[in-house]
């Protein structure tokens, strides 16, 4: 078994060092003999064992003796550990490719392929009511949530995509172009729910509702422009109104709508519904009910929609 573990270790080290490459070759010859049901008589194991013991004996004769007498057992243990870690690494690579994080969907754990955690970063919702326990990925759901309260397009499509985001959230703004592309390229029912992460952007929810009510077609273009606008501008209601005006909206009616009691009631209802989703940060994209938290790579959204794309 030592030859197997040696082949794995030296093959990896051999990427960087020629001397280890030669050892990997020797280990391979030994492995080849073993898999072809012949005894490994190349002396490789004895050579490596002697080198290891030679180093160990300088530190502790007792440890060297322990290793010497259990060399094969230790080789087995290392072999199993290396297989387990290889499977683990393979799973990490798969998870990164499919979910954008080595640790699985919506994990915020460290991932070597995304060391800064860009694919999992979210703007925490500060306006969310306090709860006794911190929200987790398993709490995210659209069950019992009335999605029809929010702007929606392509309602006939079978696949349903719901974006919960905020105009002033950095990560929603980063993810938005990809989400827009995703929604455009795929035949999906698309719902946008504005969930203000900061109190300063709370006023925008009413504008979203009123713009959508006044003209459903123009709404999506205005929505794109809102995400394309600078954050400084979006703090100002005048800017938002002028943007509506440029899209051909009746700004006067919009103002009246925003200040109406009905809109306030609707906004409160919407917030209640959003709290019910368990969303703890934006952007959160639900694809057919499955939540993707943070700005994911495009392929992740595609896999979310077509899980068998990978194969």
């Amino acid at each position: 078994m030592f030859c197997f573990i040696a082949l794995i270790v030296f093959a990896i080290l051999g990427i960087f060092s020629a001397s280890h490459r030669a050892l990997a070759k020797e280990a391979f010859q030994c492995v080849f003999r073993r898999v072809t049901l012949r005894a490994c008589n190349t002396g490789f194991k004895e050579k490596m064992q002697a080198k290891i013991l030679g180093k160990l004996i300088n530190r502790s004769s007792r440890v060297a003796k322990f290793v010497s007498h259990r060399f094969e057992l230790l080789a087995w243990i290392f072999f199993i550990l290396s297989i387990v870690s290889t499977v683990w690494v393979a799973k990490g690579v798969y998870d990164f490719y499919v979910y954008g994080n080595c640790n699985g969907l919506n994990s915020t754990g460290f991932c070597a392929f995304d060391p800064k955690g860009n694919n999992s970063a979210v703007s925490t919702i500060s306006t969310r009511p306090c709860s006794l326990k911190p929200p987790t990925e398993s709490d995210l759901t659209l069950k019992n949530v009335n999605v029809s309260l929010f702007p929606t397009k392509n309602t006939q499509a079978k696949n349903k995509v719901v974006l919960i985001g905020c105009y002033l959230c950095d990560y929603t703004r980063k993810a938005y172009p990809l989400i827009k592309k995703f929604v455009t390229e795929n035949n999906v029912q698309y719902t946008f729910a504005h969930y203000p992460t900061k109190s300063a952007s709370s006023y925008l929810t009413a504008y979203v509702d009123c713009a959508y009510q006044q003209n459903k077609d123009k709404f999506w273009e205005w929505n794109d422009k809102m995400f394309a606008s600078s954050k400084e501008d979006l703090f100002k209601p005048e800017y938002v109104q002028s943007l509506l005006g440029k899209e051909g909206y009746d700004v006067g009616k919009i103002k009246a709508c925003v200040n109406s009691q009905a809109t306030k009631t609707l906004v409160n209802k919407q917030i209640d519904q959003l709290v019910g989703t368990g969303v703890y940060g934006t952007p959160t994209l639900f694809i057919n009910g499955k939540a993707f938290v943070g700005p994911k790579p495009y392929r992740v959204y595609q896999f979310g929609l077509k899980p068998f794309l990978f194969f």
Binding site: G43, E46, K47, Q49, A50, K51, L53, G54, K55, I57, N58
Partner: peptide, 13 residues
Amino acid sequence: VDVHQIALMLSEQ
């Protein structure tokens, strides 16, 4: 005892 093992371990010393 494998003679090469002895020689290799001596070499380490």
